[in-house]
Design a protein around this nucleic acid. Structure first.
Lengths: 213, 213
DNA sequence: TTCCGAGTAATCAAACTTGACTACCAGCTA
DNA sequence: TAGCTGGTAGTCAAGTTTGATTACTCGGAA
């Protein structure tokens, strides 16, 4: 599973009601097009697919107010909200070597309560450690690692990445314990989306005119 | 672009002539099914696609000697070899945040000469540093990073990963400089593939019987 | 007045990925 | 000797991703 469903569900949820172009802009605001597959085609596809499966509710809307073809607005359903939290919890916890999944989850972690986020992240650290133990036991037989030749560098790379990942997660846990950020039920949430008409202060470059890259 | 083309081209090249199941077993031997999309369907698809585009040459082979349906053997063409080295060099050099690409390239780096591999890896370090400079300048305005709220943790995570990646690459460069591994033109190469009939000493689990997971 | 460029919003075909399924053979066992 | 199990080898439909392309509107230049 890629990160796209979590990203799209989360973005729609934060707006209450959003059309594809809005979601697309939010994700760009987070740089998601650079570290995940959140490209226009995938976003629109995910919206339609999830509407078909009842996770989103589609409202057909008259020709847009600002030029362009008529647009469709989406709203998250109860089933979609459930799915959203399932994905979010799973993505914070599981170590599956896909950095885009974790990144997406970080963007939404404040939708949980502080205590739960901490528990999930601690679980994450444990699962990284378990993974590490499993592979190093497996790929480092008594004969010594050199038996693998340069292929061993692949393992070495992954193990190093896992160690960094665990260490970074521990740092995050500390920051959260020390009161960083505003979690669910702690008052006015930090809004990481663009309000209609607002400029994106972090836009990396051109606004997508016709999209020809 | 995913890692699959590089993996498949490289595996076929090492065998001289290989059928899909052989490639599949090699990739499993490297653990590639765990850190990349090297699953059966993708492998067979890549083989066919690349044969269609002239990167591989397909030989239709009579019913297999060891049970199962008739198999097709593939051989790499000159065009395929060119593409292989282009992909390999690009994957060693570029920092595109896709760890699977680098892993695949590590498995094949010894197909290059030691000096070239070192140059490419040094270029890689430089490109990671350039990426880091670009994003930290962009996403850390004078107002301090806290302006981004928890969204800043996403950036923080990527920057940390990039730093680790650069550091790890420097380590690899040192090991290679110190004479580790056998590169092209340095005599008997380390063979990271399974010879027909050999047991996989690192198999993670079941041999895929019918593949039902 | 007409045309052009830029921004808004979405679609589409082609390629790729996934996971389940098929087909075949050999050796054992009941 | 009929059936079962397990390994070999690959196919297929459904779903996803990609990159290019379309369609529409507005404002200003010619």
């Amino acid at each position: 599973m890629s990160a796209i469903r979590l990203l799209v569900l989360g973005a729609v949820r934060q707006h209450g009601r959003a059309h594809g172009y809005q979601v697309r802009n939010d994700l760009e605001y987070w740089g998601a097009h650079e570290w995940s597959n959140a490209k226009p085609g995938s976003i629109y596809h995910a919206l339609k697919q999830m509407a078909k499966h009842g996770l989103l509710l589609a409202h057909e809307i008259a020709p847009s107010t600002a030029g362009g073809p008529p647009r469709t607005e989406y709203e998250i359903t109860e089933k979609g909200t459930e799915e959203y939290f399932t994905l979010l919890r799973g993505s914070l916890t599981a170590y599956d070597q896909k950095p885009d999944i974790l990144s997406a989850a970080l963007g939404f972690m404040v939708d949980l309560e502080r205590g739960e986020a901490l528990e999930l992240l601690e679980e994450r650290v444990r699962s990284i450690e378990a993974w590490r133990a499993a592979v190093t036991e497996h790929y480092t037989p008594e004969d010594g690692p050199e038996q693998l030749g340069h292929i061993g560098e692949i393992m070495n790379f992954w193990v190093t990445s896992a160690d960094t990942g665990a260490e970074w997660t521990r740092g995050l846990i500390e920051r959260i314990k020390d009161g960083a950020y505003t979690f669910a039920g702690e008052g006015e949430p930090f809004v990481g989306v663009l309000v209609e008409g607002e400029e994106n202060p972090y836009a990396t470059g051109e606004k997508h005119p016709g999209d020809a890259s």
